[in-house]
């Protein structure tokens, strides 16, 4: 009774001398690409959160009439707030910023100086509408307040939101560009490695050609090798990035930038998995194209 044969052996030499170094380089690239992806996602998420908050809020700056015992700050602001409530409905949350809070708001500019009683400060009212409702119409609100005898300007924070949106877009673009550069670097490393592997395994390729192997068959061998190499390198790098991000989410001083819940973590983990698949795919395709091109050039030279 004959012994069963061992498993099929790989036609190409299984591990070259530089494979470990190559996997390390790929792992570092994938690690940086993973962090770039997570940073882009976090920036995008944070910017979205801030814009959501801003889009459903407004600040009403009321120009107060000269204060008197009968017509003091609270009275005037109370009337203004009541008018706003009657215009926006009961679902809107209208909050009057009291005099001492108003003074606190300008403290960054004047420091801890005691302000004179006679200094006229504008009265501030914050308005928040429910998340899924329509944002306050500033022009309409201003004119309706004026019709009720209240001089006020309404700021819907749109300029601030636009700035946040623009900054976030720039950061996401930067992160994506960095990601793309790292992918290109990964492809280049794989092209170089494939060409080096082909040069060092020239004798095997010539045997394969001699027994009738097509370019596609030979390319598949190198694609498989590059795919395994990239899968290992990218896997190590992206798992490291995941652990770093998890650590930052748990222990960072700015937790809002990182994962604040299981849903976000799962979502980003899926993105990392997608990046791993993309990394492996582009590296394998690059190796296949490099092999076919090299074989074609070799044939032309012959």
């Amino acid at each position: 009774m004959s012994r069963p044969l061992p498993a099929q052996q790989p036609i190409l030499r299984p591990r070259g001398h530089n494979v470990r170094t190559l996997i390390t380089v790929l792992a570092i690239m994938a690690f940086l690409a993973g962090l770039a992806l997570l940073f882009s996602r976090a920036t995008s998420r944070l910017s979205g959160d801030w814009q959501d908050q801003l889009s459903n809020s407004a600040t009403v700056q009321v120009s107060l009439a000269p204060l008197s015992p009968e017509n003091d700050f609270e009275t005037q602001m109370g009337q203004a707030a009541e008018t706003i409530r009657s215009l926006l409905g009961s679902q809107a949350k209208v909050t009057v910023v009291n005099q001492s809070q108003s003074q606190d708001l300008i403290r960054p500019w004047i420091g801890n100086l005691e302000l004179p009683e006679s200094l006229s400060l504008p009265g501030l009212i914050t308005v928040e509408t429910p998340k899924n409702s329509k944002a306050p119409n500033t022009v309409l609100l201003e004119s309706q307040l004026q019709q009720n005898g209240i001089v006020a300007s309404v700021d819907d924070h749109s300029r601030w939101a636009d700035q946040i949106r623009g900054t976030a877009r720039a950061l996401v673009f930067g992160g994506t560009a960095l990601l793309a550069l790292l992918l290109i670097a990964g492809i280049s490393v794989n092209l170089f490695a494939t060409r080096a592997a082909m040069a060092s395994q020239r004798s095997i390729i010539s045997v394969l050609a001699q027994v009738g192997a097509t370019d596609s068959f030979i390319a598949k061998l190198f694609v498989g090798q590059a795919g395994r190499r990239s899968a290992s390198g990218a896997g190590i790098g992206l798992i490291a990035a995941w652990f770093i991000w998890t650590g930052l989410s748990l222990f960072s001083a700015v937790p809002e930038l990182f994962w604040s819940g299981f849903g976000q973590a799962l979502n980003d983990t899926l993105w990392l998995f997608g990046l791993w698949a993309l990394f492996v795919l582009v590296c394998a395709v690059a190796a296949g194209l490099a092999t076919k091109r090299s074989l074609s050039l070799e044939r032309k030279r012959a």
């Binding site: 044969l5 061992p6 052996q9 036609i11 030499r13 299984p14 004798s203 095997i204 010539s206 045997v207 001699q210």
Partner: peptide
């Protein structure tokens, strides 16, 4: 032209 890292089989 045998491949050294492959068995005879």
């Amino acid at each position: 032209t045998l491949i050294d890292h492959l068995s005879v089989f």
